[in-house]
Measured scan of single mutants.
Amino acid sequence: MTYKLISNGKTLKGETTTEAVDAATAEKVFKQYANDNGVDGEWTYDDATKTFTVTE
């Protein structure tokens, strides 16, 4: 399945996607992506749209 990340960081804003077997796997990928880009904030997940959002 395709999962989307919306980043509302102070230094990184935008969207990216990943293919993953489940939401937990996608979350690990996205949290590593955010960490690699210096984004640390509040996370939410919408199962209906398969979208994670991180806001700093």
Rank of each mutant, 00 (worst) to 15 (best):
M1I: 14
M1A: 13
M1P: 09
M1E: 13
T2Y: 07
T2V: 13
Y3W: 05
Y3D: 03
Y3C: 03
Y3P: 02
K4Y: 15
K4V: 12
K4E: 04
K4C: 08
L5P: 03
L5D: 03
I6W: 05
I6Q: 06
I6N: 04
I6P: 01
I6F: 07
I6S: 04
S7Q: 08
N8C: 14
N8D: 09
N8I: 15
N8T: 11
N8M: 12
N8Y: 14
G9F: 12
G9Q: 06
T11N: 12
L12Y: 13
K13V: 11
K13A: 09
K13N: 10
G14S: 12
G14L: 15
G14A: 12
G14M: 14
E15F: 11
T16L: 14
T16Y: 15
T16G: 04
T17L: 10
T17R: 07
T17C: 13
T17W: 14
T17M: 10
T17P: 02
T18N: 03
T18P: 00
T18K: 04
E19G: 05
E19M: 14
A20C: 10
A20M: 03
A20R: 02
A20W: 02
D22N: 09
A23H: 08
A23D: 04
A24G: 08
A24M: 10
T25P: 01
T25D: 09
T25Q: 12
A26I: 02
A26T: 01
E27Q: 09
E27H: 10
E27R: 06
K28C: 09
K28L: 12
K28S: 09
V29T: 10
V29C: 09
V29M: 09
V29Y: 15
F30I: 01
F30P: 00
K31R: 15
Q32S: 08
Q32V: 07
Q32P: 01
Q32T: 07
Q32L: 09
Q32I: 08
Y33I: 09
Y33K: 03
Y33T: 04
Y33V: 06
Y33E: 02
A34L: 11
N35L: 15
N35T: 13
N35D: 11
N35M: 15
N35H: 15
D36F: 08
D36H: 07
N37D: 03
N37S: 07
G38M: 06
G38K: 07
G38F: 07
G38V: 03
G38D: 07
G38A: 06
V39P: 02
V39Q: 05
D40R: 12
D40P: 03
D40A: 12
D40E: 13
D40G: 08
G41N: 02
G41P: 03
G41L: 04
G41Y: 04
G41C: 04
E42D: 13
E42C: 11
E42N: 09
W43N: 00
Y45D: 01
Y45T: 00
Y45M: 00
Y45S: 01
D46K: 03
A48Y: 10
A48D: 12
A48R: 11
T49S: 10
T49E: 05
T49A: 06
T49N: 08
K50S: 05
K50I: 02
K50P: 01
T51H: 02
F52G: 01
F52Y: 05
F52W: 06
T53V: 08
V54I: 13
T55L: 08
T55V: 10
T55W: 12
T55P: 01
E56D: 09
E56S: 08
